[in-house]
Structure formats: C-alpha cells, structure tokens
Simulated assay, not measured.
Amino acid sequence: MMKSDINFRHLYYFWVVANEGGITRAAERLGLAVQTVSSQLTLLEQALGKTLFAQQGRRLVLTEAGRLALGYADQIFLLGEQMQEALNEFDSGRTRLTVGISDSLPKLSAYRMLEAVTRMDRPVRIVCYEDQFEALLADLALHKLDVVLTDREVRAGATLKVFSHQLFDSEMVVVGTPVLAQRYGGADDAFPQNLNGAPFLLPARNNALRGKIDEWFVQHHVRPDVVGEFEDNALLNTFGRRGLGLFFAPAALADDVAEQFGAVRVGLVPTVREQFYMISSDRKIMHPAVEAILAGSRKATPPAA
C-alpha cells in the first residue's frame, strides 16, 4: 500500500482508541474484538510509516506522530459528523448555517447582519459560535464554519484563502443612561468638550474601533475618565446599562440600543465609523444563506450595522 493511500476505517479506529484511552475500551465502543482493533492499528501504522502509539507501563500513549495525526483525525471526523447533521437537517426541510461571531462584534450588529437569513423561503437553522477573530478564521479555513461575522477585514497578504465582504458601515454616537446623558449632554455646540472627565466604557486596545476613538479624543482635546475596557462588547453594554459610564454605539443601532440597554444619545461622532464584515471561504458553490446575507446588505438603505 502506498503511504498516501490512507484507509479511513483504520484511521477511525485510531481516533476512537486515542479518545477512549486504550484498545480495550475502544473495542467495546466499536463492538469489535480487541485483536481486530489492534491489527487495524498496525495496518495504519504500516501505511503511514509512523508509530502512533507507544507502550508506557500498562498504558498506551500517543507518540509525537500520533498527536499530529490525531489533530487531523479530529478535524476529519468532526466534519463528518457535521456533514451527517447537515444531511439530516436537509431531509427535514431546513438549511444549516454555521456562523462564527467575533467576540468584539456588537450582538445587535450580528443580528442585523443575519436578519436576511431569517426571511429566506427555505427555513434556516443558524448555529452560532463566538471566539476570537484569529481562531474563527482558522475554523473557517478548515470549513468548520460557513462564515465569520466581525468588525475587521482580513489583512492583505494573508495565507488563508478567505475573503472579506464589507456589509455595513455606520457612524458612531456616544450614549449613556438618562442620568449620565443629562449630566454630560447639553447643547450640540458644547459637544464634545462637555465630555471632559466623563466616565467612559471603551473597547479593549486590540479592538479595531479603539484606535479611532482614542484619535477622536485627542483631536478634540477631550480627556475622558476611562473606568472600564472590555474585549467582550456584550459585557461593555451591560456595564453601560448599569450606568457605570458612557459608551460608543453605531448610530444605525441607536433605537435598538435605547430599547435594549436604556441608553440615550449624548452626541453624534460622524468621523468615527465602524465597519462590519462577513468573511467567507473559497468555495466554488456559495452557501445560499451566504448569498442572502450579501444580497441583504446591498439592498439595505440606509446602511445599517
């Protein structure tokens, strides 16, 4: 057998043994004889030309090659399980859309970006995962996700075969609870100087929006009292709802922010804009829900975040 000719049944047995921690337990799970599983592992090792397990006392442990192979096997069989789930959902009349949501993305914005999917003729089951931007891109490249929603685009020259689609663009507003808005609001001609010393809740410094906000403060000679910095936008909004400080929100979501967080507008910041992107992978046949998201963003008037 050539080394490139992997028997995936043998690979599956290896994966089960590695996850069960031994051949005996794996054989019980598979409903096979211990000798059968052991011989299949031997055939896989011969095919790969690598030893995948080593005996350590009475235990089997993965070798370095085994740990490397397990990482790929995890991806292969996870995708296989997802494929089966997707096919089962197809029979039920639903389409499955697996979405990665960047932890810095406002949740209201994520909903707006996915709103077109909820209006499709064929029902869609939306499965959402939240994580850091880089981790989500890696999962997208491995086709564990259909799309990633985020507030930044993929850098030019990135090695991953993924593509950035800007869906929306919105100027920002400063908002806060009615008590804070009354204290630091006032006439438009006093804004933003009336924000000097005001308590602010800001995105963490690794957030794409934070640099724009800091630059705006410097340009207008405003020195805020930064009482909190957050990587998680939902947590920032929760603190804002409790009146711990003023915060920035997309102007297109001002009504939603007022309804959900009880925060009212203090002033408009047109020079600070936030962009919202959908990142897709390189596929010749585009997911119908992804097409709906792109079509929805083109029809949006005015642009909404």
Results as ranks from 00 to 15, higher is better:
residue 168 F to Y: 13
residue 283 R to C: 05
residue 202 L to E: 06
residue 41 L to H: 03
residue 200 F to W: 11
residue 47 A to Y: 01
residue 267 G to V: 15
residue 286 M to G: 00
residue 277 Y to A: 01
residue 13 Y to H: 07
residue 46 Q to P: 00
residue 164 S to P: 09
residue 198 A to L: 09
residue 137 L to W: 09
residue 124 V to I: 15
residue 31 G to I: 14
residue 71 G to I: 14
residue 120 M to L: 15
residue 265 R to I: 15
residue 256 D to T: 13
residue 285 I to G: 00
residue 237 N to Y: 13
residue 219 Q to L: 08
residue 172 M to K: 05
residue 142 L to W: 14
residue 160 L to Q: 06
residue 181 A to Q: 10
residue 256 D to N: 03
residue 221 H to C: 00
residue 143 H to I: 13
residue 107 K to Q: 11
residue 294 L to I: 15
residue 93 G to I: 15
residue 208 A to M: 05
residue 87 L to E: 12
residue 281 S to R: 04
residue 211 G to D: 02
residue 264 V to T: 08
residue 282 D to C: 07
residue 210 R to Q: 03
residue 18 A to L: 07
residue 219 Q to I: 07
residue 289 A to E: 02
residue 200 F to H: 03
residue 125 R to H: 14
residue 41 L to W: 03
residue 46 Q to N: 10
residue 203 P to A: 03
residue 291 E to W: 07
residue 23 I to K: 05
residue 271 T to I: 10
residue 301 T to Q: 10
residue 141 A to K: 06
residue 155 R to Q: 14
residue 32 L to D: 02
residue 51 T to Q: 10
residue 296 G to R: 13
residue 134 E to R: 15
residue 138 A to C: 09
residue 106 P to D: 06
residue 220 H to A: 00
residue 301 T to K: 09
residue 36 T to L: 06
residue 53 F to H: 03
residue 78 L to R: 11
residue 137 L to K: 13
residue 43 L to Y: 08
residue 94 R to H: 11
residue 107 K to M: 14
residue 239 F to N: 00
residue 297 S to D: 04
residue 64 E to N: 04
residue 148 V to Y: 04
residue 4 S to F: 07
residue 283 R to G: 03
residue 5 D to Y: 12
residue 242 R to Q: 04
residue 227 V to D: 00
residue 207 N to T: 09
residue 140 L to A: 07
residue 274 E to I: 14
residue 289 A to L: 09
residue 286 M to N: 01
residue 199 P to R: 06
residue 205 R to P: 00
residue 91 D to V: 15
residue 169 D to A: 10
residue 290 V to R: 02
residue 271 T to D: 07
residue 167 L to C: 06
residue 39 S to R: 12
residue 224 P to G: 00
residue 1 M to Y: 06
residue 187 A to S: 10
residue 126 I to P: 01
residue 131 D to I: 12
residue 36 T to S: 09
residue 149 L to R: 01
residue 78 L to A: 11
residue 75 Q to A: 12
residue 79 L to S: 11
residue 171 E to K: 11
residue 104 S to L: 12
residue 22 G to P: 03
residue 160 L to P: 03
residue 63 T to K: 02
residue 200 F to A: 04
residue 50 K to S: 02
residue 18 A to I: 04
residue 297 S to H: 10
residue 151 D to V: 15
residue 273 R to F: 05
residue 224 P to S: 00
residue 198 A to G: 04
residue 115 E to T: 13
residue 232 D to G: 00
residue 231 E to M: 02
residue 240 G to V: 06
residue 250 P to Q: 05
residue 154 V to R: 11
residue 299 K to M: 14
residue 265 R to A: 02
residue 23 I to W: 01
residue 25 R to M: 08
residue 8 F to M: 13
residue 171 E to N: 08
residue 96 R to G: 01
residue 197 G to P: 02
residue 59 R to Y: 08
residue 101 I to W: 04
residue 49 G to H: 08
residue 21 G to F: 14
residue 197 G to I: 12
residue 215 E to W: 06
residue 219 Q to R: 07
residue 46 Q to V: 11
residue 38 S to H: 12
residue 104 S to F: 11
residue 55 Q to G: 00
residue 201 L to A: 03
